[in-house]
């Protein structure tokens, strides 16, 4: 039992060890390879890194919930784009003209609502048809992206509102708005998963769906709520990002689902469900962002970055499997 607990602790803190390793590596390697004069572990640089982690990170929180629940959501990138289109476009709708700058919260709300509706659609289909979430959200990924293109063709949608940009770039205790949103959301989702009945049921359903059904948990509506949560978070991520940039291309958010899932898996959430933690996901997001930034710092290009991250992902899954095999005398699978 003691050994079990120790093993569990090692596994849970693995991602943080990995981050420390990355920091050391890039600081040292950067010293020799980097073209720039700045140290990698510069304070401003780290703050920037947190801010850049926010868009993927906020969605990854939702993905953690959905994956612990035993599902997956591939449509988050498209939801991200569609929410941005709704937000930026609605700001110039004539009916909102009298509102002045008060249009900002209204557009935000509309964007968030869009995300929730899209999530609800996914959840409802999974509930009522019983089709695997992978397939359902693969379909909606294409469908939602189609909606983005229908809205404005190949054209970008843009809306520059300086008040909004000011809010988006505000700082509190030195942290920028996106970072703050990411941290607050992490805390909230953590509280939900660990302290509420719904959160505990997320684990129960993902671990053993049949047992959950037997125990009388209404699995369908339960899963739908989680899809609404991830839809909301994808839209929130979009709100945070596009409030600052003010312009969305119809292809934005593409492949986000893959980055998000990679971060969640790096954080140790089980692909089959039942196990995972948002704190570790937070770690996974930071780890990926560090890698991207760090490799850039020492002069690697995007292709190289992708190759490295892909290899690390596979290595992590392999290591996890090895760790799960308990000991020599123990049962092999």
């Amino acid at each position: 039992m003691q050994q079990e607990t120790r093993k569990r602790m090692i596994k849970e803190s693995a991602i943080w060890g990995f981050i420390v390793l990355e920091l050391i590596f890039f600081s040292v390697a950067g010293h020799f390879l980097s073209l720039s004069e700045n140290a990698f572990m510069d304070f401003e640089n780290m703050l920037l890194l947190l801010k850049q982690s926010a868009p993927i990170g906020i969605i990854a929180l939702g993905m953690t919930v959905v994956m612990i629940n035993g599902n997956i959501d591939l449509s988050v990138g498209a939801t991200f784009a569609l929410a941005a289109v709704v937000m930026l476009d609605s700001m110039s709708w004539p009916i909102f003209a009298p509102l002045g700058d008060w249009v900002i919260p209204v557009s935000w709300a509309l964007a968030l609502l869009t995300g929730m509706v899209l999530g609800a659609i996914n959840g409802f289909i999974v509930w009522k048809t019983g089709v695997d979430a992978f397939i359902v959200t693969l379909g909606s990924m294409l469908g939602f992206r189609g909606l983005v293109f229908m809205y404005n063709g190949e054209q970008p949608t843009f809306q520059l509102n300086w008040t909004m940009v000011d809010i988006a770039e505000a700082r509190l205790f030195g942290l920028q708005t996106p970072t703050l949103v990411l941290i607050v959301c992490t805390v909230l989702v953590w509280l939900m998963l660990n302290k509420t009945i719904h959160g505990r049921n997320v684990y129960a359903v993902g671990d053993n769906r049949e047992a959950a059904v037997n125990a009388g948990i209404r699995v369908g509506p339960h899963m739908m709520i989680n899809f609404i949560i991830i839809g909301f978070l994808a839209a929130l991520s979009s709100v945070v990002f596009y409030s600052a940039s003010g312009s969305v291309n119809p292809n934005d958010g593409m492949l986000y689902e893959l980055w998000v899932i990679t971060a969640v898996v790096l954080g140790g959430t089980k692909l089959t469900g039942g196990k995972g933690s948002v704190i570790a996901t937070f770690g996974g997001v930071i780890a990926i962002q560090l890698l991207r930034k760090g490799l850039g710092h020492i002069g690697a290009d995007t292709a190289m970055v992708n190759l490295v991250i892909g290899s690390i992902l596979i290595a992590v899954l392999y290591l996890d499997k090895q760790l799960n095999r308990k000991g020599d005398g123990d049962l092999k699978v």
Binding site: R200, N201, Y203, A204, D207, N208, G274
Partner: peptide, 13 residues
């Protein structure tokens, strides 16, 4: 549900 505690399983649902 094996990843949950004994107590949570007893009161599952």
């Amino acid at each position: 549900a094996e990843e949950l505690s004994v107590a949570e399983n007893i009161y599952l649902g």
